[in-house]
Design a protein around this nucleic acid. Structure first.
Lengths: 268, 268
DNA sequence: ATGCGTTTGTGAACGTGTGCACAAAGATGG
DNA sequence: CCATCTTTGTGCACACGTTCACAAACGCAT
């Protein structure tokens, strides 16, 4: 199962994944400085603007090369260019958005798309009532056109904003059509073949993490005592082999299949 | 600057942050099993359903306690309860959403909210044209009501879906009113006092990370050669002290202030 | 009771990420 | 040309996260 010497997602040519995740942050801060015609910036100042530690920032930049000048700082324009190039933002990235509900609309209108080389190649939906309408000035087209659009416009990035039940199916079609990077907003674990990247954005998970910390702050830590019986079933021993066998069937053969949470990304 | 012995966000009582981030994933998979009345599940099966490695899952669960039965697996109902309790989902969490554009609408309609103990206490917006309309059956109320709502309903979690220019301001008001956990969708670095948690969801960053890996796949790695001159300014040495001094003023005194990227979360 | 097959729980090794602290490098002023 | 001041780039130590591999625990059949 191990394909690359390092790990799941080889840190390409020496750039750590954690650093890659911060580059867009630096880029944003630098762009703001650039618009104010600030010529140079120190690691300390830029780090403050990006909300990180300055040593971390310097180390991050050191992976890209020695683009700073000691005693002075970093040239803003030069860094903007270098980071953009490293992230691949100097080229055009056509993107398809599948599932045009509220969230799909929000993304279609999202200004951050166009501003960084991302171009909405098409909006797709399966619902005939939605197909034909327009969002952000673009027509919503039917799922059937997915394959021809992806192939014709060389789309390599797909965004899934469908209800969770449709996500895996849509994902399969995207991959089959040639998409190799997927941004998934549906609360579903997607199965993809090797070589396809998936990143997920999950509202519900973020809130639950906040709730965890919030609970800690309140001092109402869940105590490990005799209190608070489990609501339904006690940990009663008993005949379980048959149950386990049944479970094995129900859980699906080889991978995550039946994950049909009832919550929806786009209830409308 | 170091407040806690471990680090930035002390891992409460022994539960690592990485584990906390996965608990909601396990919970979702377990809930799906529960709905199918599956009584027990092995670490291998549950790990597959959650998209993680089984050893990792077992270690994660070991931080919660010994809730499994060797030779059998984990009792689904029991685990659902324990994880819910650990995450603080057995209590009610009122939430305010500020900024009711497309994204705000999408979140208000999000089914995952209600299904896990999160309740939308109020929808708020500053635009008089939006105030008074309804979203997801709830009236949109004016920002002026923020303080009274937060105080009156004991809201501790706020969601920011405003344009980036308004985010810090809204954040300050939320914190001032008593909110101690914030989920930020605006592409802005928020400054908050100690004791307030911020999690951010940033569309643009996710896409840029995908683009980075996509570029690597294409083999078009940015090469470190004499090619590709920087577009605007060369790395010309020269008198820079005055510039650096000017910069220091422009960048703001103590913290991230002027971060006004032109992209908007909610252009509408 | 005893043995067998299964699955958990965890010690230990390894990889990744973070932050300190400082030498090297450059700018600037005399 | 030299002294001084500023800021980068990085070696090092430590914290955190992941994975392996295996003993201990448990159900079940005989």
């Amino acid at each position: 199962m191990r394909r690359t010497p390092v790990g799941r997602q080889t840190r390409a040519r020496g750039i750590p994944e954690a650093t890659v995740a911060r580059l867009p942050l630096y880029l944003r801060a630098l762009t703001a400085l650039s618009e104010r015609s600030v010529p140079t910036v120190s690691s300390e100042e830029l780090a403050a603007a990006a909300g990180v530690n300055s040593a971390k920032l310097r180390k991050d930049f050191s992976y890209l090369g020695s683009y700073g000048t000691r005693g002075v700082g970093y040239d803003v324009e030069y860094l903007v260019y270098q980071i953009s190039r490293e992230l691949g933002l100097t080229q055009d990235w056509p993107v398809v958005i599948v599932g045009i509900g509220n969230l799909g609309h929000a993304l279609a209108n999202y200004g951050g798309f166009a501003s960084r080389g991302f171009r909405v190649a098409a909006l797709l939906d399966a619902d005939p009532n939605v197909v034909g309408s327009t969002a952000a000035g673009l027509p919503v087209r039917h799922m059937d056109e997915l394959e021809s659009i992806v192939a014709g416009q060389h789309v390599s990035i797909g965004v899934i904003t469908t209800p969770p039940g449709a996500a895996q199916q849509v994902c399969d079609r995207l991959v089959e059509a040639g998409v190799t990077s997927i941004l998934n907003f549906a609360p579903t674990v997607l199965n993809v073949p090797d070589g396809v990247d998936v990143r997920k954005v999950d509202l519900s998970i973020e809130l639950q993490i906040l709730a965890f910390h919030e609970q800690r702050k309140s001092g109402e830590e869940p105590e490990e005592g005799p209190i608070e019986e489990p609501p339904v079933r006690e940990r009663t021993p008993g005949p379980v082999r048959a149950a386990a066998a049944k479970l094995r069937r129900a859980a699906g053969g080889k991978d995550t299949k039946g994950d049909s949470d009832r919550q929806a990304v786009l209830p409308a």
